[in-house]
Each structure stands twice: as C-alpha cells, then as structure tokens.
C-alpha cells in the first residue's frame, strides 16, 4: 500500500514541474497565450481545463478495455467534447462575465493537445486511481503557469492583480503586455527562466 501511495504522489508531482505541460512539454499553447491577459482569466481557464482533463481521464481509464484500438482517438475526442460542452454551459450560466472574456477558448479545450495527449499517454494505460492523480497533477501544473503568466501580464499591463489595483496613479501601464506581442515575449522569458532554474538544480 505504501508503494502505491508513493506512486500516486509521484504521478501527481510529475505534472507540476518535471513534465509540466506548458514549460516542459510545450503543449496547450493557444489558451496559454490567449487568455492570460488577466490573472482571473488565467485561473478560470486553468480550472476549466483541469476539470475536463480529470473527468475525461476518469471516464477513459474506466472504459479503456471497451474501446477498440482503431477508433480510440475519435472516442476520446467525443468524451472530451461532451465534458467541454458541460463546462461551457456551466460557465455561461453561473459566470457569464468570465465566459464572455474567454469566448471561443472554452470550446477550444476540445482540441487542446494536453488533454488528448494525456488520454493517449496515460489514462488509456493506467488504472483509474493513477489516472486521477495524473489528471490533478497535470491540471495544477497547467493552472499555475497560467496564473503566473496572467499575474505578470496584468501587473505590468494594468498595474493590478486579480483586478485589485496595486500600483497607484503614477504608474503608466505597459499596454504591450496585455496585447498579443506581450504574451509571446513574457512566456518566452518565463520558459527561459524555468530552464535556468532546472539547469542550476542539476
């Protein structure tokens, strides 16, 4: 039992740093860049993606033996699309403001390579418990990078974090940070810093 618990924890930690989907695997880039103009949007996107990831990993790891190998990719996409529709309607009903600002990037979770990639690489081969641990780890790994990226861009671009103004009137916002160009450059520098940190560790 102790061995199993250890395994679950290592599955969980895997996504946070070692195989972080954005920093290490460089997948799921479209939402990463598009919705991180504010911290709130980054958090909402991270949580929405995590939910779809965890839910579809659970379902797929449960029914993996029933899916014929030839049609597995379409079946995965159908399961994912169902959960995405669920999240989309939930956001539209309870958080219309967030749904508005994320716009088409909520439905685009369907084609996020992170989700399909994890089904193919992990959920289809491992028991449900490990799939949940992997989903939570990967989801959190994705979410924290989105939140950090959103916070940096919002701080420099608008002088606030989560909508709270931190810098006073004197601050002239760097508008470039909330525009597309700022997204690319911030993420580029962030990945560079992460590379530097993990190289130091070795």
């Amino acid at each position: 039992m102790a061995v199993k618990a250890k395994q679950l924890i290592s599955d969980l930690k895997n996504g946070l740093w070692q195989e972080n989907p954005i920093i290490r695997l460089v997948i799921g880039m479209c939402p990463t860049l598009a919705v991180t103009n504010t911290t709130e949007n980054g958090l909402a996107m991270g949580l929405a993606t995590s939910f779809v990831l965890i839910a579809s990993e659970i379902v797929i790891s449960l029914i993996k033996k029933l899916i014929p190998a030839n049609v597995r990719i379409p079946s995965y996409i159908l399961i994912i699309a169902t959960f995405v529709t669920f999240v989309d309607y939930f956001l539209k009903a309870f958080f219309p403001g967030i749904a508005e600002s994320l716009s088409i990037f909520v439905p685009l979770i369907v084609v996020n390579c992170l989700i399909l990639g994890r089904q193919e690489a992990f959920a289809s081969k491992n028991p449900t418990r490990r799939a949940i641990a992997d989903g939570v780890g990967m989801g959190l790994g994705f979410t924290w990078v989105l939140v950090v990226l959103g916070a940096i861009r919002e701080f420099f671009g608008m002088g606030s974090i989560f909508g709270f103004t931190l810098l006073g009137e004197w601050y002239r916002p760097m508008v470039i940070m909330v525009l597309p160009a700022g997204a690319f450059i911030t993420l580029g520098i962030l990945v560079g810093i992460m590379n530097y940190i993990s190289r130091e560790g070795k």
């Binding site: 450059i185 580029g188 520098i189 560079g192």
Partner: peptide, 19 residues
Amino acid sequence: PGVLKGVPVTLIIAGIMAM
C-alpha cells in the same frame, strides 16, 4: 544564450513578429 535555445527564443521572435 543556452537557456533561451529552442522554445524560448522562438516565442520571443513570435512576439516581435506580432508587434
């Protein structure tokens, strides 16, 4: 620079292109 090789520098170039 070593740490920027690959993905990071590509992203920064993309940023300049977006500008």
